[in-house]
Amino acid sequence: MSEEAEILQDEPQEELYERKSFSVDKGQEPMRIDKWVQMRLENASRNKVQQAIDAGFLTVNGQQVKNNYKIKPGDELLLMSLVNPEYTEIKPEPISLNIVYEDDAIMVLNKPANMVVHPGVGNYTGTLLNGVAYYLQQNQPGLTDEELPRYGLVHRIDKNTTGLIVLAKTASAAAHLAKQFFNHTVQRKYTALVWGNIEEDKGTINAHIARHKRFRKMFDAYPDGDHGKHAITHYRVLERMNYVTLVECILETGRTHQIRVHMRYIGHTLFNDWEYGGDKILKGTVFTKYKQFVDNCFAICPRCALHAKTLGFKHPVTGKEMFFESELPPDISAVIEKWRNYVQHKQLPLE
């Protein structure tokens, strides 16, 4: 029996599902698939495996099967499973949610800045999922903690990134959405304000992403070799303001900090991205009036200037193409307008 884990466990990503493949040996005798899979997964209960099969997270030769399916030699199994299950409990909390769309299968929300998506080390409360759990319980009286759809999160965005995120309300919807994210068929466009004048109108950044070799909370780009995970970001210039540029970024893959790392890699760190040095003046001579202007911009947008603006996918039940768009939040809009006025009415300092 051979097993291939296609996503490394110790490197988180925006998509929260990994894909594992299994090949059944030629000498394998018939056996129920739920039992066979359970024997090959660490800490997996028979019940959890059965739930995964029922939800469509496990396919055999590309087809969904039932729990009583008997495996046979040569079968190729593909299992989608949750990556980084850092949280084991979601405490419902009354947190304000900006719900853009909702039906029986999915929820699309517009996440504000300074909100973590799911509980984890150091952030057990106040997260988006804590608010969703409370919302679901209020709308479905009698819903127990065990019945809350922890599996509903199929991707995430950073704490200080604003914008659109989709959650599944059923296991089957989660499986369907997870496959779309894994196969890179989900349409995602981000708007970012970056330091410097990007000369090309558009381009593609192709560089692996992995944890920084010195600073473990950061990530870095590795263009040569196989270190890290394959990552591709397409970008298009929306507006140039001499010392900052407004860009649209389209994700082909979804790695943690992908846009932030890739833009820094090409020399255009996101504006006020303190983790990657964007909270310093990276373009322009530091003199009193200009420095004061930039500090004022940092105060207006006290975070990384990144917004998940559009999200498109196929509805997991109807198959209908769904598309959502979110306006830029006030802090990013305000800092863009401030830069526009500055370059229009004042001469920027020469380097």
Rank of each mutant, 00 (worst) to 15 (best):
E18W: 00
E18S: 03
R19L: 14
K20L: 10
K20D: 11
S21N: 11
S23H: 14
S23P: 00
S23D: 12
D25K: 08
G27R: 04
G27A: 13
Q28I: 07
E29F: 03
E29T: 12
P30V: 03
M31A: 07
M31R: 10
M31V: 09
R32H: 09
I33E: 13
I33S: 06
D34Q: 04
D34L: 02
D34E: 11
K35V: 15
W36Y: 14
W36F: 15
W36V: 05
V37E: 07
V37F: 15
Q38P: 05
Q38D: 04
M39I: 06
M39L: 13
E42Y: 02
E42W: 02
N43A: 13
S45A: 13
R46D: 11
N47H: 11
N47T: 14
K48W: 14
K48R: 15
V49H: 02
V49M: 13
V49F: 02
Q50R: 07
Q50S: 05
Q51A: 08
A52Y: 04
A55C: 01
G56D: 04
G56R: 03
F57Y: 14
F57E: 12
F57C: 13
T59H: 04
T59M: 03
V60T: 05
N61V: 05
Q63I: 05
Q64C: 10
Q64E: 15
V65G: 05
V65I: 12
K66R: 05
N67R: 12
